[in-house]
Design a protein around this nucleic acid. Structure first.
Length: 908
DNA sequence: CTCTCCCGCCACCCG
DNA sequence: CGGGTGGCGGGAGAG
């Protein structure tokens, strides 16, 4: 396991090394799991891995240790790829002093340093050619280093709704180390989180994690403050101004939309009373304060969409205009930081307000509209959610359970599922039944529950709220907009990447955000790509993708599509929503890679640019098939059920049941467009059904459970299709039996180039197949080069644990991540899947594995392929073994911390 | 080119 | 006074 020595090979294949070193560092595999994951992000280059040694050192010597491989960036020195990097390298080579300096820095930035250090020594030597190339490949893109991603990683470490009993402390050092970033970056995140009371400072370097429990309250407070401050007016005013400006530029466009209130003076926002924010001179400018103000602005503004420019103006205290340009610029920079964090929290998403002239980036509030969360409400929420859940399958069930958990603080997957089942039962045609039949799968999937849990959380907030949105306190418009109650409106608005389209399509006024929003959504259809993107960053609760922080899982709900039911043209927007989300997410890289960017155009659009077809449709379509219903919508309601759910359900059922046998058969296929990658024809087939559904309106919900590759995966993400799952379940009806779920492995953004690998679940079948390389999966996906993946099994122990891993209440959150237990097979399959990307391999397994199943994980062949890089965060990949270990150890958030602690101690 | 926003210097301020 | 915090803005990546 410990590979201390780095070899060129190691360097080349970052994965292993990383892990190793991660492990080493942590020694504690445990902690590192998380760590690794986190760190992984940075990583891009395999080189980092090498640092393993360093890491070890790290343990002992802070100086060296600190250097984490993670940061590729730092590597600059080492990294030749960029001119800048080259210069640095040269410089450092030339000047020892400089080098020392860098090292020092490195000390402070453990992770980064590792890389560097490592690189220094190694790079120089190694970096030669091929190495360089690889590095380049691996090299993390800016996006990979983004605060948004970092924040996601950060959030993934902690349960959204920690049990009251569990006190989670956040050690900045640990976090920084584990995530492989400078502490400075952590401050940025923490400050924003603190502004929302998600964390609070406990002591030096110590923050306490509160989770989202009080978020509604905080938001309510901020909203109130915002109202008091008249931010709404201010924003309106500013927006108008902007619009006006635009108009000038564009011509006429703006018109209504925002209200124009004109009180410029509104600007005086003194600081809000915001709880956390204290404002002192310096503090006034603090990120915390800005963050609160920003949220206030969003909540106060009618459309709940603000451009950073407007926000900056407002926040700039009054200086609406950009008077001080520099000042303004600075403000905007900070706002980006804040926006990234809020995006990670799924509270906002980037959208583009389009105007003819162009689209302006803006951020739309997608968080809960209703801030009053009562248990009852929650209950309601769950109820509302149920419908969707039904659709979704077990995953949904889990959600319900999760919600409850979240709500009650205790998470009992079983209980939750029972309740859910009841409900389901009550409903005749609901898919649930099937699910129920499968019974246990929800339980089995218990681990997944964690994932869902998040979703629940989101739903609770987003979803539930979404519902409320219909009668939103502030956003009446939304309600109006959306035929469907819920979030539709909001969601719609959100989107926009395609703003262009949207705009173009719509007569919207440039300014009219709201209008745009709605529209945009519609056009957005093409979410798929986004979906891919979405992987990365944020997820919006309401949106199809749900990001599960604790466990880096995302749920993709096909349901997104709920589609417009009956009348809702706008509903479609939901899709748009997704898209938007995706966009804003920024993680774009992933999608792009996968599908390359797909445009959101029409769904099927051939138009999609890229490859799309295959890819796009595949993944994208999967994600959001034409019908769009957003989760939020769903969540919001039962509406869905009422509306069109029936058809869906039928579909689902049919699909599921039959499918189950067929396994993923078509349904799956449908779901996973990706499969089609290669075959468009297939897609067509699939699509047809989908379309039909659409027509029916019911969305076939495709749900995907997205498992981000946290630690182990080196960046790979796995998409499990909810739909299919059922079938899969069917195959193995036993409650406990391991589920084989079709899954799609999505390369992390980093992976970019790599296609998604989808492993159809072969129901029941556990493929043995496990070659390191992908064997053709049942379902063809065609990832051309890639092999198809083996089916992913999710089960308590893959092996045999019949029981789903219990999710202890406390653990629940934690479990999230771990929750999934993947059968070893899975891991293998994953691994196999992508030859190219080595990363795939074990991660998943590691991720999944919860308690029991120890075995599996080890990938037989851990091969690192060259490209580990993708994922590569140093930590992430690591050895399979390590991974296993890590994973195995149950990771709790707490554990994570603990883990961190260990390292931290070392590091510091 | 513009938009983003990473990076890290260095000042503030607390213990 | 040392070190944790975090404002700030240069400058570079991405589009």
């Amino acid at each position: 396991m410990e590979v201390n020595c780095l070899t060129l090979k190691d360097l080349i294949s970052p994965r292993q090394p990383r892990r190793d070193f991660a492990i080493e560092d942590g020694e504690n595999v445990q902690k590192e799991n998380i760590f690794v994951d986190c760190s992984r992000m940075a990583p891009k280059t395999p080189i980092k891995n090498e640092p393993i040694d360093l890491s070890k050192q790290k343990l002992f010597t802070p100086e060296r240790n600190p250097m984490t491989p993670v940061k590729l960036v730092d590597r600059q020195q080492a990294e030749p790829w960029t001119p800048t990097a080259n210069l640095k390298v040269l410089i450092s080579a030339a000047s020892p002093d400089i080098r020392d300096r860098e090292k020092k820095k490195g000390l402070f930035r453990p992770i980064e340093n590792k890389d560097d250090a490592f690189t220094d020594s190694l790079q120089l030597d190694v970096v030669g050619d091929s190495a360089v190339d690889e590095f380049e490949k691996q090299r993390p893109s800016r996006k990979q280093k983004s605060l948004g991603l970092l924040c996601q990683k950060f959030l993934a470490r902690y349960p959204s709704y920690p049990l009251s009993t569990e006190k989670t402390t956040i050690s900045l050092d640990e976090v920084a180390v584990s995530l492989g970033v400078e502490r400075r970056r952590i401050y940025d995140i923490v400050n924003v989180l603190e502004s929302l009371h998600l964390v609070s400072r406990v002591a030096k370097n110590q923050y306490g994690w509160h989770g989202r429990h009080s978020l509604p309250k905080t938001l309510r407070t901020l909203q109130r403050l915002g109202e008091e401050q008249r931010y709404e007016e201010q924003m309106a005013h500013l927006q108008q101004k902007e619009l006006d400006l635009l108009e000038y530029k564009c011509g006429e466009r703006k018109r209504d939309g925002c209200a124009e209130s004109q009180d410029p003076h509104l600007l005086d926002f003194s600081e809000p009373d915001c709880p956390s924010s204290s404002a002192s001179s310096r503090k006034d400018k603090s990120l915390r304060t800005m963050s609160q103000k920003f949220v206030m602005l969003l909540l106060a503004s009618k459309p709940k969409i603000v451009t950073l420019g407007a926000a900056a103006k407002v926040l700039t205290e009054g200086s609406q205009d950009t008077a001080d340009h520099s000042k303004f610029k600075t403000k905007v920079r900070r706002l980006y930081d804040i926006a990234n964090v809020l995006t990670s929290l799924a509270l906002i998403k980037k959208v583009h307000v389009t105007e003819e002239r162009g689209r302006k980036p803006a951020f739309k509030w997608i968080g809960p509209v209703d801030f009053s969360p009562s248990d009852e409400e929650l209950v309601d929420v769950s109820a509302s959610v149920l419908p969707e859940l039904k659709r979704d399958t077990y995953g949904h069930i889990q959600f319900c359970a999760n919600q409850k958990l979240a709500r009650h603080g205790s998470f009992n997957s079983v209980q939750a599922s029972e309740k859910i089942q009841r409900k389901v039962n009550s409903e005749p045609s609901s898919p649930y039944r099937d699910k129920q039949e499968s019974g246990g799968y929800s339980l089995e999937i218990g681990s997944l529950a964690a994932v869902y849990r998040q979703k629940i959380e989101d739903t609770s907030q987003g979803g539930a709220f979404a519902r409320r949105r219909a009668m939103p306190p502030s956003g009446g418009r939304d309600a109006a907009a959306a035929p469907l109650p819920s979030r539709s409106a909001d969601s719609e608005s959100c989107a926009s990447p395609p703003a262009n389209r949207v705009l173009s399509g719509a007569p919207t006024d440039s300014q009219a955000f709201s209008a745009q929003n709605g529209r945009g959504a519609v056009s957005l259809g093409p979410v798929a790509s986004d979906a891919a993107e979405s992987l990365q960053p944020a997820l919006l609760p309401g949106q199809p993708l749900v990001y599960v922080p604790s466990a880096p899982l995302f749920m993709l709900c096909g349901g997104l599509q709920e589609a417009p039911a009956p009348g809702a043209g706008p509903e479609r927007d939901s899709r748009g929503w997704e898209v938007m989300a995706a966009e804003h997410t920024s993680s774009p890289s992933v999608p792009k890679r996968l599908g390359e960017e797909r445009r959101p155009q029409e769904e099927e659009g051939p138009a999609t640019k890229r490859q799309s077809r295959d890819c796009e449709e595949g993944p994208l379509s999967l994600v959001m098939p034409k019908k769009p219903s957003d989760p939020t919508d769903i969540a919001s309601s039962k509406n869905m059920e009422t509306r069109g759910s029936a058809p869906q359900e039928d579909l689902r059922r049919n699909g599921q049941l039959s499918a189950a046998k067929e396994a993923s058969g078509k349904a799956l296929a449908n779901c996973f467009v990706s499969a089609e990658w290669g075959n468009p024809s297939r897609n067509s087939e699939i699509e047809k059904p989908l379309k039909e559904n659409e027509s029916t309106k019911e969305p076939s919900l495709l749900q995907y459970l997205y498992v981000q590759s946290p630690a182990a995966l080196n960046g790979f993400n796995v998409l499990l299709s909810g739909h299919q799952t059922p079938p899969a379940v069917g195959a193995s009806p036993g409650p406990l039996p391991p589920l084989s779920v079709p899954c799609m492995v999505v390369p992390s953004p980093t992976l970019g180039p790599f296609p998604l690998v989808y492993s159809p679940a072969v129901p029941g079948r556990v493929p043995a197949a496990p070659g390191p390389l992908p064997h053709a999966g049942p379902a063809p996906f065609g990832l051309s080069g890639l092999g198809s993946a083996a089916p992913l099994l999710i089960g308590p122990a893959a092996a045999g644990n019949p029981k789903p891993p219990p999710l202890p209440t406390a653990d629940a959150p934690l479990q999230g991540p771990r929750a999934l237990s993947l059968s070893p097979v899975t891991s293998r399959s994953l691994r196999v899947t992508q030859p190219e990307s080595p990363v795939y391999r074990g991660h998943q397994a590691s991720v999944a594995k919860p308690q029991q199943s120890p075995a599996p994980v080890t990938p037989k062949s851990v091969r690192c392929t060259q490209r580990d890089t993708f994922f590569k965060t140093p930590g992430s990949l690591g050895d399979p073994v390590l991974r296993k270990r890590e994973r195995n150890p149950s990771r709790n958030t707490t554990s994570a911390q603990r883990r961190l602690e260990i390292p931290s101690g070392g590091s510091d």
